[in-house]
């Protein structure tokens, strides 16, 4: 009766097993710290330009759009507060995670997928290396560490984007804008904005790795895995965001 559920449940089970193995490997030798650093560079530093660009434009657009609404109530001076709280608690983590999912979950899935279909992963096992230890754990660690940093950068650049608009087009003063930005933020908001990317990074990297190392069916299979990795990790970003927001709203 519930046969249609068999495949998704099996996928979830395999995914959880992979996550458990990847986590357990953190405490087991050998450690591939060089690979962790290389991935931190590729995922973290490599994603900086696109994350900054997106963050900056989001902050600027938000300031523009909100200034119109706020002007109706004569409250356009509060644009800094709106940009700040929206970016830090919600838009910053979600946008950055979505960008990283699009850029890196796809990269990871296609890289590991190509290795799988050309038997490089089997070769690795035959030559004495656990592919989860060598390939999955470094990517998981790198993305989980780097995504909160990227989010902080995106948030800040977004605030700067909002400030430029507020200063140039709305006519708010610098002091008024940044005071608003600072005063509206509670510790919970900052915490929320940092914990969300931590979870997102963990899930995005593992989804990319999972679809990569389970690739079958040649180059076509690599394409399919890449698409699935981006779609599934993006959906998870929204789901995680919803659940964590619910938790923080009730704090």
């Amino acid at each position: 009766m519930f046969q249609f559920l068999k495949a998704p449940v099996a996928t979830l089970q395999d995914f959880c097993l992979l996550a458990a193995k990847a986590l357990a490997n953190i405490f087991r030798a050998p450690h591939y710290w060089d690979d962790v650093l290389a991935q931190m560079d590729r995922i973290g530093v490599g994603s900086l330009p696109i994350v900054m660009l997106t963050g900056g434009f989001s902050g600027a657009v938000m300031a523009l759009q909100m200034s119109k609404a706020l002007d109706t109530y004569g409250a356009s001076s509060q644009v800094g507060q709106i940009v700040s709280i929206t970016l830090v608690a919600q838009l910053g983590p979600v946008l950055t995670s979505l960008l990283v999912a699009g850029r890196n979950a796809s990269g990871i899935a296609s890289e590991l997928g190509s290795m799988k279909v050309t038997e490089q992963i089997d070769a690795m096992r035959a030559l004495g290396t656990d592919p989860v230890q060598k390939l999955v754990t470094p990517r998981m660690l790198a993305m989980t560490i780097m995504l909160p940093f990227l989010t902080v950068v995106a948030d800040f650049v977004g605030m700067v984007g909002g400030w430029l608009v507020a200063l140039g087009l709305i006519g708010t003063t610098t002091a008024m804008y940044w005071t608003g930005v600072y005063e509206i933020l509670e510790y919970e908001d900052v915490l929320q904005g940092l914990i969300k990317p931590l979870f997102n990074g963990f899930v995005i990297s593992l989804v990319g790795c999972y679809y990569g190392i389970t690739t079958t069916g040649g180059t076509q299979g690599v394409g399919r895995s890449t698409t699935q990795a981006v779609v599934v990790s993006s959906v998870w970003v929204f789901v995680i965001n919803l659940f964590l927001t619910q938790i923080f709203v009730n704090l």
Binding site: M115, D122, A123, A126
Partner: peptide
């Protein structure tokens, strides 16, 4: 496995 060598079908060298 350390006592076994293997040449894979398409060599499977690490790119």
């Amino acid at each position: 496995r350390a006592q076994v060598g293997m040449l894979f079908q398409e060599s499977a060298l690490f790119d």
